[in-house]
């Protein structure tokens, strides 16, 4: 019998999404294994975000299926689950890190409450314990403890992004979706954030699906990558292989377009 670690955590089969006549993404299939980081790269408009939204139940696909291995080991089709089950999954077993932290945070409540919200949503009713956990997670993402009662409005872009990560990881998810997690940050802040993400993913054994147009981010974070163009997957493979020895003409173009400093 196969061990749970060797079986896919998420499985996407023949997934397509149309916006009327237009194609968001077409016939995409792939699998993600526990502890694996998968990068989805491609230019703007290539269908990366549509794909991410479809597999994270934020957007219903036109055809195809997305299945997820629940904690009991059973593989379930996400779009055959009830909405209540999907939403419970989203706030316990999954995380979603938005490009713009304002989309993923409650900007008008304190950092502590932002981190504690998921705990309260799954029934934690002890203020002291919630606060201890929040403090622990803030220090884990390098936010000073005395900022726990500040609102994210008072935070810099990099701090907001780190707070968003803490908010997502507090329930110990097994799969995290990230949409351009380093977008809009300057390079030194990007570097620290990537370092932090890499550490967390390693320590927690998270699986992650990272959408990015930045090949350097994909190189640093991911084990495997998918290259998309016009809604289709044009190449798929180990990150180092794809970047060092691109096969598809579009991937070759993409890799050769990286600016050298």
């Amino acid at each position: 019998m196969m061990r749970l670690q060797e079986m896919p955590l998420l499985s996407v089969e023949g997934l397509s999404r149309y916006y009327g006549e237009r194609v968001g993404c077409r016939d995409v299939s792939f699998e993600v294994y526990p502890g694996e980081v998968l990068a989805i790269v491609g230019e703007s408009g290539s269908g990366k975000t549509t794909l991410l939204n479809c597999i994270s139940t934020r957007l219903e696909p036109s055809t195809g299926s997305v299945s997820y291995r629940m904690r009991d080991g059973a593989m379930r089709d996400l779009y055959r689950m009830s909405e209540a089950e999907r939403r419970l999954l989203m706030r316990t077993d999954w995380g979603f890190v938005h490009q713009n932290p304002a989309d993923g945070l409650r900007m008008t409540v304190s950092a502590g409450a932002n981190v504690g919200e998921r705990l309260m949503a799954v029934g934690e009713r002890h203020y002291g314990r919630i606060r201890d956990t929040a403090t622990h997670w803030l220090s884990r993402v390098e936010i000073a403890e005395d900022r726990i009662d500040d609102q994210p409005r008072a935070f810099s872009g990099g701090m907001r992004q780190r707070l968003q990560i803490a908010r997502n990881l507090v329930t110990g998810p097994r799969l995290v979706f990230m949409d351009e997690p380093t977008g809009g940050l300057d390079v030194s802040v990007q570097a620290r954030l990537l370092d932090l993400l890499r550490g967390l993913v390693n320590d927690l054994g998270l699986a992650a699906i990272v959408v990015t147009h930045d090949l350097a981010v994909a190189r640093l974070l991911s084990h495997r990558m998918i290259v998309m163009k016009d809604g289709r997957v044009v190449e798929e493979g180990l990150t180092d292989r794809v970047l060092d020895d691109p096969q598809a003409p579009y991937t070759q173009l993409l890799v050769s377009s990286i600016l050298q400093v």
Partner: peptide
């Protein structure tokens, strides 16, 4: 869906402040 975690966020904020 009985998702009332947010209500406690408000009470949490009260205590924090």
């Amino acid at each position: 869906l009985e998702e009332y975690g947010l209500m406690h966020v408000k009470l949490y904020e009260d205590i924090a402040r």
